[in-house]
Structures are given as structure tokens and as C-alpha cells.
Simulated scan of single mutants.
Amino acid sequence: MMTETTEYQKTLSLAAYLFAYPHAEWWAKLPACRQEAASLENPQNKQIILDTLDYIEIMGHKEYEELYVRTFEFSANTNLYLTMHDRTDFGKQAREMLEFKNLFLDNGYDLNKELPDFLPALLELAAHLSAEQAGKVLSRIQPKIELLRQRFVAAKLAHTFLLDVILTETDELEGATA
């Protein structure tokens, strides 16, 4: 059992949190997120996460919540369900969904509230695994994150930079376990 949280675990947990729905409890925990982000060693990741927190807090509860719903729940192009971006082949989508479900089950986790292709859930999964296992999970979803990033860029979303943080962590974990 890991006692001390490593850099990649903190980073992935923070990214997962910032991609989660902004309900009242979520807002209440933002100061703790800021403290956690300030403790990151990677200066670029630290700055991106702190800038994202600034962006969210400046926008405020109502406006950010509306942006979140419009962007991540109602948009087919920028939602956070990774199998939804290629909906031309529903058989393929079903197979991918099963693969994501197995990713959780194979690592000793099960989802009861979320679909297995939900980006924050996958990031949380990776944050709770060893570096080697986390690298495998992130490598598996990397092409989907890269596609999502392209769509975020086209939509001019500030959250694009959080995807950059995730891709940086993916590269570092792949390098550490190669």
C-alpha cells in the first residue's frame, strides 16, 4: 500500500477533480485543490492547474456551472465520455465501453455511478495505481485524449491545458516504465 502520494498521483487526481461536475461540495473543496496544486514539483503542471483554478473562481459558480454543462454534458464534440467522439460505429463503441469497464475490473475497481469511459473516472483510476499500471491506463486512452484536445482547441476551451497536463504525465509514465 502506498503511503505517500506521488507527483503523478496528485496531478492526475487534480485534473480529474477539475473535470468533475461543479456541485456545492466541489466548490467547497477548491481551496484544498489549490493547496495541493501549489505543492506540485513540475512548474508547468503546477502553473496550468493554478491558472485553471483562477479561471474557474473568477468566472464564479453560476457562470462556470453553465459553461461546464454546455461544454462537457451537452456538446457531442467536447463531452468527457471518450467513446462518444466516434459514434459512427455503435458496435465499436460498445466494444470500447467493455474494454474501459475491464480496465477498471482488471485493476480491482468497479464503477457504480459513472460510465467507464468518463475521463475523470479514468484519471482517478490511474491516480490510484502503480506508475507502471497508471502508464498502461493512460497509454490506452491517450489517442482519445489527443482527439479531445483537438476539439477543445477548436472550441477555444481553457481546459485544453488540463489535457496537456494529462498528456505530459502520460509521456513521463511511459518513459519511466519503458
Rank of each mutant, 00 (worst) to 15 (best):
S139F: 05
F152N: 04
L162K: 05
R34V: 08
P22T: 03
T3R: 10
L18R: 07
F152I: 03
L50G: 05
A134D: 07
L163A: 03
T71E: 07
P22H: 07
I49C: 08
I56P: 00
W26F: 03
K29D: 04
Q9N: 05
L147K: 13
K101P: 00
Y8G: 01
E66Y: 06
M2S: 05
E4F: 04
E36K: 13
Y109Q: 12
M2E: 08
I141L: 13
S75C: 08
Q47K: 13
L103R: 02
T71L: 02
V137C: 11
I145N: 01
A37D: 06
A15W: 00
S39C: 10
N112F: 13
T78A: 04
R140P: 01
L14N: 08
P31K: 07
F72H: 02
I56Q: 01
L129R: 10
L147P: 02
N77K: 12
N107H: 15
G175Y: 14
F161K: 12
G135N: 09
E132A: 15
T177K: 06
T177L: 08
L162N: 03
K29E: 07
L125F: 12
T6S: 15
Y68Q: 01
I141D: 03
L147E: 11
H159L: 05
Q142S: 12
I48M: 08
L167G: 07
T78R: 02
M1K: 09
Q47S: 10
Y21D: 10
P22V: 05
L162G: 04
E99R: 09
A15D: 03
E36Q: 15
L163S: 04
K136C: 05
A176C: 05
T11E: 08
L18E: 02
L12I: 04
R70W: 02
A178V: 11
D171P: 02
P22W: 04
Q35M: 12
Y17E: 04
W27V: 00
W27C: 00
Y8F: 15
D171G: 09
L50D: 04
R151T: 08
I48A: 07
K136Y: 13
A121G: 10
F118M: 02
L125W: 08
H23A: 03
I49L: 14
V69R: 09
N102A: 04
